[in-house]
């Protein structure tokens, strides 16, 4: 189908974009890569009166290493971040997550920050942000504020952004030493949104015990979720196969009410989530051990 008509603005500075958004309130939408918004417009699932296109704003497409973080600006395309040397060296989990998003032509346009702002519960990057404890830098008419990822994702396609606000950048903590990582998912076809997926990081101390463990799931709730029940099983322990199996079981048991739809029942999602947590933790352990 064709999109409904809208007023179109293409500001060249972030201040101008914020002013336009503030002026139009909840009638306006930000347009970034368009890989989620334009399908919704074409299907007429969204009918904003105004679009504020960020694509002509200069200086927003950065990816840089800064104070132990990888900082990604609102217009950095997924494809560029996937190939960034800083990302590969400091936080390879981001690049691995991006490779699971759609297809090359989709990643050529889609932005990392747009995926976070869109907050599809089955999306990879919001789960990575929650697992790593990323920070969201929001700019609005009243200046800038920083929101923790866990607070930012509110529910299905809903984030902590008021009308008039723009997500300016996301700051992902770099991977600490002796830390392994993994992101795994089950999808119906290559490049599709996941039915369920798991993100894990695991840090080993000198004795080979897990000093830090993070587990997050996507596709199993109305937002990406950390799974403290699984993390507890491993924290301070040697991550052998039995412990990891127990952590996976704890993740499965902790899933109260995963969604049920034509693609997968709640019971299937719960089962798969447990399997994926086990797989992700084993892979993270192998990478942590290999990192010396």
């Amino acid at each position: 189908m064709k999109p409904p008509s809208f007023e179109y603005f293409a500001p060249t500075t972030l201040d101008e974009a914020v002013a336009l958004l503030a002026q139009h309130g909840d009638e306006a939408k930000v347009l970034a890569g368009g890989q989620s918004l334009v399908p919704m417009l074409n299907l007429r699932l969204a009918r904003p009166a105004a679009l504020v296109d960020l694509n002509r704003v200069t200086g927003l497409d950065y990816v840089r290493a800064e104070n132990g973080h990888v900082v990604i600006g609102a217009l950095a395309r997924q494809r560029a971040v996937e190939r960034s040397a800083d990302v590969a060296a400091r936080q390879p989990l981001i690049a691995a997550a991006i490779r699971l998003i759609g297809h090359p032509a989709v990643r050529n346009r889609g932005t990392v920050v747009g995926s976070l702002a869109h907050a599809d519960p089955a999306a990879e990057l919001p789960a990575v942000a929650v697992a790593l404890g990323a920070e969201m830098v929001v700019t609005g008419p009243n200046g800038e504020r920083v929101v923790a990822a866990d607070d930012f994702f509110v529910s299905y396609l809903t984030v902590d952004l008021a009308p008039g606000e723009v997500l300016k950048e996301a700051r992902f903590p770099a991977l600490p030493p002796r830390t392994g990582w993994s992101i795994v998912e089950v999808a119906r076809r290559f490049g599709d949104f996941a039915l369920a997926g798991a993100v894990a990081t695991l840090t080993l101390d000198d004795q080979g015990a897990a000093s830090d463990v993070r587990v997050a799931l996507f596709g199993v709730a109305d937002r990406p979720v950390r799974v403290p029940e699984a993390e507890q099983v491993l924290r301070g322990e040697r991550p052998d196969d039995d412990r990891i199996a127990a952590a996976a079981e704890a993740a499965r048991a902790a899933l109260v009410d995963p969604p049920s739809d034509v693609h997968a029942s709640a019971a299937y999602r719960r089962h798969v989530a447990g399997v994926l947590v086990g797989r992700a933790l084993r892979e993270a352990r192998e990478r942590a051990q290999a990192s010396g």
């Binding site: 368009g34 334009v38 074409n42 494809r79 297809h103 032509a105 050529n108 346009r109």
Partner: peptide
């Protein structure tokens, strides 16, 4: 499909493959 799924509309924009149904 006009919503980004089929790839029939793929063109090059400044040298990069993109879905022309998802750009104005």
């Amino acid at each position: 499909c006009e919503h980004g799924v089929c790839g029939a509309c793929t063109v090059l924009l400044n040298g990069e493959a993109v879905r022309s149904c998802l750009i104005f």
